[in-house]
Design a protein around this nucleic acid. Sequence first.
DNA 1: GGCACCTACTCAAGAAATTGAATATGAGGT
DNA 2: ACCTCATATTCAATTTCTTGAGTAGGTGCC
Lengths: 187, 187
Amino acid sequence: MSLKYAVLAALLEGEASGYELSKVFDVSLANFWPATPQQLYRELERLAQDGLIEARVVQQERRPNKRMFTLTEAGRADLRGFAAEPPRRPTAIRDELLIKIQAMDGGDARVTRGLIEERMSWARGKLARYERVRERLVDGRTEEEYLRTADRVGPYLTLMAGIAFEEENVRWCHRVLAVLDRRVPLG
Amino acid sequence: MSLKYAVLAALLEGEASGYELSKVFDVSLANFWPATPQQLYRELERLAQDGLIEARVVQQERRPNKRMFTLTEAGRADLRGFAAEPPRRPTAIRDELLIKIQAMDGGDARVTRGLIEERMSWARGKLARYERVRERLVDGRTEEEYLRTADRVGPYLTLMAGIAFEEENVRWCHRVLAVLDRRVPLG
DNA sequence: GGCACCTACTCAAGAAATTGAATATGAGGT
DNA sequence: ACCTCATATTCAATTTCTTGAGTAGGTGCC
């Protein structure tokens, strides 16, 4: 049900094809509502049938044709309605690494260390990418100026949530490493 | 696939029935691998068939009988193997509220405020519950002492992740409220 | 006395997600 | 010449998840 609104929200940025959406999703929406390309194509089909988005086929010469989708007024209205309702489900996190950490005792601490280090460097990579998105958004303005004057601040606030999450992730990894070291010194 | 290991990890705490597991999942595992009772019962069936857990029926007088499940040695070994592998999928977060925030511009800022306040008080409630779990775990010891000496620290470290996540959540909510106020002062 | 909630599950229909492959073409590198 | 990657989807099989209901007695509260 929510994928529907995630797609509509993505289209607030403007017209896009399924393929483009699947890219956009990867860098922004995926941070709080992941979806595979297949899911997106299916959802776009449905939304078009329900009149919440409009499709037009763009003929291309040296590429496969593509269908570009735009929000309709009905789509905007539906999204506004959704945005004003309280969420139906609480936040859900699925993190395989945490299952592994839950079960780590009795295993090889050095292997666990490796997993944590991998996670940490992945989180740092993500932070770097977020930072670039942030810079493109504020576009030279100070944050304060941006937040007071920009048309839309929603995308910035969700980006902040993503950044905070990954920063916290890095701190947690440090902490786990410290605990592991105290218990089984690598000396 | 991971639900399997989440269940095995939960059984590291000792024998449990499906019903008990569904309670345990609610307070601890659900924080990084949510599952409904139906999912759990199905998974337990499968794990028992595969010989990773053992079931025994406990006759009860004034209650329906229950089946208690224990890890087998094969189950422990499988779990150890899993815990040493790198995760197959990155962390996935699904947060309806963030979709709403992404799409909030053009809507009623007071309504959005309400949603954020709801989220904040929910996060505080969760923090309070986490704190109680933490106290039961450390059981009078200092954190330092606990971390050096306890048999298992995995559950504590995942609890720390949950606490950090919710604290971050609260901070983010404050921030969003500040931004909303600056843009549309409530006077 | 009645009602709601707790224990302890099981069943089944339908919706959704996952996965892998298929299609067709072009661009860029070695 | 060949290989891989990018564009831009679609299809289909399988698995998984979600939802609601059903069963059946017990406990606690007003």
